[in-house]
Each structure stands twice: as structure tokens, then as C-alpha cells.
């Protein structure tokens, strides 16, 4: 381990914050990865409660069924890295006000499920917070085809993208591919915060 590099990274991450919209398969896994990496602050937004079938891909435990995702993730991250400052919003993101919880974060991660909501969210953040880097994921469903996933950059929008994947309405959502995309998003957040790893 390169101690000098590690300490430099830890210092920078400690000063940075990531906002995550949606705490399902993408959001819960990305949040945990960033907490383990040593991010200073996470802004977590979700309105939902945990159901049994969520455990197939989301970072929760049986004991969390029926509890809110924000509270459960707060508990989980507290057990991994209590140094992370957590700001939680148990709300449904409303069209026209979607950027509100994310005004002060360094980077925003889109981790929503429905294509329509994803599009509206990205458009709102990019238009209302024009200098904010936004990381989004599209094409999460299915299994295999890891090497079809690429990063597409469009200005401040960074897309973790598989344009050949099917909609989750016609496919399945399973842990390995969802976690892969979630960690891809978290890894992009590090790259944006720290600069390219040369």
C-alpha cells in the first residue's frame, strides 16, 4: 500500500460529499462503497421502505424489512464507518424540486429505477445546477455482458451505460450486475473528486 497516496486520497475524500438519489440496488451499494472508501459526507434520498424481494440486490438485511431505506442505510453505514456524516431525506423526489437536496454536494449520483424518472432527474440537475457533475446509470438489468458497460461522458454528465440492455420491465434485476453498475458509479465519483488515477 502506498501510504502517501492513500493519505492524500483520504484527506480529499474527507472534504467531499456525494448525494445519492434512490437507495435501491444502485444507491445502497454505491453508498456503502463510498462509505468504505472514506467519503466525508453522504446525502441520501429515498421515500421507500424495504421489502423482502429487495434483498436480492440491495444492501439490506432481513431485519430491515418494513423499515425505511434511509434509516436502514444510516444504521448499516454507521456500523462500517461512523466517521461519515449522513444527511438523509425520507422523501419522494418531486418534479420541479429535484435538485433541492443536492445543492451543496460535490457530486450527484442518479440511482433511480424508472427510465422516465431518471431522465427527468438528470435534466433537472443539469439545468438547475449546471456546474454539478452528475453520474447516472442506464442498462442495469440482466446478467453477464459486463464488458458491454462503458462510461459515456457528456460534459458534466457521466453515464454508466449499456445501451443494449433490456428495460427492467422486461428483464430481471440481480445482485451481480446491479452491484457492478453501482460500484461503477461510486468509482466514477472517486475519479471526479480525486482526478484521474495516473
Amino acid at each position: 500500500m502506498n501510504k502517501v497516496k492513500f493519505e492524500r486520497i483520504q484527506k480529499k475524500l474527507k472534504e467531499s460529499s456525494v448525494g445519492i438519489a434512490g437507495l435501491g440496488g444502485l444507491g445502497s451499494n454505491a453508498a456503502v462503497a463510498l462509505a468504505r472508501a472514506g467519503i466525508g459526507c453522504l446525502v441520501l434520498v429515498d421515500f421507500d421502505k424495504i421489502e423482502e424481494n429487495n434483498l436480492g440486490r440491495q444492501y439490506y438485511f432481513l431485519e430491515h424489512i418494513g423499515k425505511t431505506k434511509v434509516d436502514s442505510l444510516k444504521e448499516i453505514i454507521g456500523k462500517i464507518n461512523p466517521q461519515v456524516e449522513l444527511i438523509t431525506h425520507n422523501i419522494k423526489l418531486e418534479k420541479g424540486l429535484m435538485e433541492k437536496p443536492f445543492k451543496d454536494v460535490t457530486v450527484v449520483i442518479e440511482a433511480l429505477d424508472n427510465a422516465e424518472t431518471k431522465t427527468i432527474f438528470i435534466e433537472e440537475i443539469l439545468s438547475k445546477l449546471p456546474n454539478k457533475p452528475v453520474i447516472a446509470a442506464s442498462g442495469v438489468a440482466g446478467y453477464g455482458h459486463s464488458d458491454r458497460i462503458t462510461t459515456k461522458r457528456l460534459g458534466n454528465l457521466y453515464m454508466c451505460y449499456d445501451g443494449k440492455a433490456k428495460s427492467s420491465d422486461d428483464d430481471v434485476l440481480i445482485a451481480p450486475r446491479v452491484s457492478l453498475m453501482a460500484n461503477w458509479e461510486a468509482n466514477l465519483a472517486l475519479e471526479i473528486i480525486l482526478g484521474e488515477d495516473k
Binding site: G25, A136, L154, V178
Partner: peptide, 10 residues
């Protein structure tokens, strides 16, 4: 012009 399509799942 860049066109990206959003696919459900998360």
C-alpha cells in the same frame, strides 16, 4: 449531438 437513452432498472 449526443443521444443517450435511459433504460429502466436500479
Amino acid at each position: 449531438v449526443a443521444v443517450i437513452h435511459m433504460i429502466s432498472g436500479g
